[in-house]
C-alpha cells in the first residue's frame, strides 16, 4: 500500500472537471484508491465522493493506493494533481 500526501495546486480546486479527470485516470488501474481529508475517507474512483471533499487550492489530501499496480497508479495520479489537472483556462480577462 502506498500513502502519499499531496496539495491541490490548480486555481479552481478539485471541482467537477478535475474530479472527472482524476476518477477517469484512477479507474484505469486495478488498485483501490482512497482519499483522506478532514479525517474523512472517500473512494477515489467515485466522482461524487471526490466532489464532496470540495478541496480547494492549497488543500492537503492523503492518497491511499493499494493493489497490484499501485506504483504506476500512484505515480500517474500524483502527476495529474501536481500538474494542476492541466488546467489552462480561466485567467480573468
Amino acid at each position: 500500500m502506498i500513502k502519499e500526501k499531496v496539495t491541490i495546486v490548480n486555481k479552481a480546486g478539485l471541482h467537477a472537471r478535475p474530479a472527472a479527470a482524476m476518477v477517469k485516470l484512477a479507474s484505469r488501474y486495478k488498485s483501490d484508491f482512497f482519499i483522506h481529508m478532514y479525517g474523512y475517507k472517500v473512494n477515489g474512483k467515485s466522482i461524487l465522493g471526490v466532489m464532496t471533499l470540495a478541496a480547494e487550492q492549497g488543500a492537503e489530501l492523503e492518497l491511499e493506493i493499494d493493489g497490484p499496480d499501485e506504483k504506476e497508479a500512484a505515480e500517474a495520479i500524483i502527476e495529474l494533481i501536481n500538474d494542476g489537472f492541466g488546467e489552462v483556462y480561466e485567467e480573468d480577462e
Binding site: 472537471r17 472527472a20 476518477v23 477517469k24 467515485s46 461524487l48
Partner: peptide
C-alpha cells in the same frame, strides 16, 4: 463531468 457523475459506481 456530468456523465461521469451518472456513471459513478458508488451512486
Amino acid at each position: 463531468a456530468q456523465v461521469a457523475m451518472l456513471n459513478d459506481p458508488d451512486l
